[in-house]
């Protein structure tokens, strides 16, 4: 299958002819596996870095974490990228630009929403100028929760994306990616639960806060009772 310039999918006639050839299935699946291997191991990233998460994206590309290890490099132009990493808050003024840049990327393409601002707007989600999650206007393949997520979390996100591409190309069913539960978003980088200086009332307050949250996503409105 391929995508033409009018964004219609079609099966190439050559591909159809090949499929009828005896023994082609073995060759084609092998070729497909090789192609998938190439696709997953050279994910070039377009950093849609608007704010704090952009700095953590840079840190992920830098020496301690090094995105280059898994063949991922950042390119400045959307035309040469496979993955758009939306790192940071997307505002109403910025959203049309993000959409445009997403449309400029060539197929096949994927999107990673990095950080809670890109996932749901986080605590800006009720603000007049902030888009409550980029998946309201463009598809998102992998969510990487955190505020901002540590660079290793971004690594895990890219690994998840590779796994997802692999399964999709093999025609297997994949768990649809949902917005992570908000309790996951709130987990601290280093649990200071065991610290002697920590008050018991803090834990209770956190527990209460977690229990009172909307399990479906992060879009709970103050007036809306779940």
């Amino acid at each position: 299958m391929a995508v033409n310039e009018e964004n219609e999918t079609f099966v190439h006639p050559l591909y159809e002819a090949l499929e009828r050839f005896p023994g082609a299935d073995v060759g084609l699946t092998t070729a497909d596996r090789v192609l998938t291997w190439g696709l997953t191991n050279a994910l070039w990233v377009f950093p849609m870095a608007t704010s704090c998460c952009g700095i953590e994206f840079m840190a992920a590309a830098c020496s301690r974490f090094d995105l280059d290890r898994i063949g991922t490099i950042a390119r400045g132009t959307p035309r040469q990228c496979d993955v758009m990493v939306i790192a940071g808050t997307i505002t109403v003024k910025m959203a049309p630009r993000v959409k445009k840049l997403w449309d400029q990327m060539p197929e096949p393409k994927w999107a990673i929403a990095m950080g809670s601002c890109a996932i749901s707007g986080d605590f800006y989600r009720d603000i007049y100028s902030v888009v409550p999650g980029v998946d309201t206007f463009m598809p998102v393949d992998v969510y990487v929760p955190g505020c901002p997520p540590n660079p290793d979390a971004l690594f895990m996100g890219i690994r998840r994306l590779q796994e997802k591409i692999r399964l999709k190309r093999e025609g297997k069913w994949t768990e649809p990616e949902l917005r992570p539960d908000t309790p996951g978003l709130r987990s601290p980088a280093i649990g200071r639960l065991g610290d002697p200086g920590r008050d018991a009332c803090t834990s209770q307050a956190q527990l209460d806060a977690v229990l009172g949250l909307d399990p479906g996503g992060g879009l709970r409105r103050p007036d809306q009772k779940s």
């Binding site: 704090c52 700095i55 953590e56 840079m58 840190a59 830098c62 020496s63 301690r64 505020c147 901002p148 540590n150 601290p188 980088a189 280093i190 649990g191 200071r192």
Partner: peptide, 25 residues
């Protein structure tokens, strides 16, 4: 140059992580 300065910056962030439990915010 960027990679070298980030190496140093990471080590400062480590100090903050030990102090506050968070790398960044």
């Amino acid at each position: 140059l960027f990679m070298h300065t980030f190496r140093e910056r990471e080590s400062i962030l480590d100090c903050f992580e030990v102090l506050t439990g968070s790398r960044f915010h």
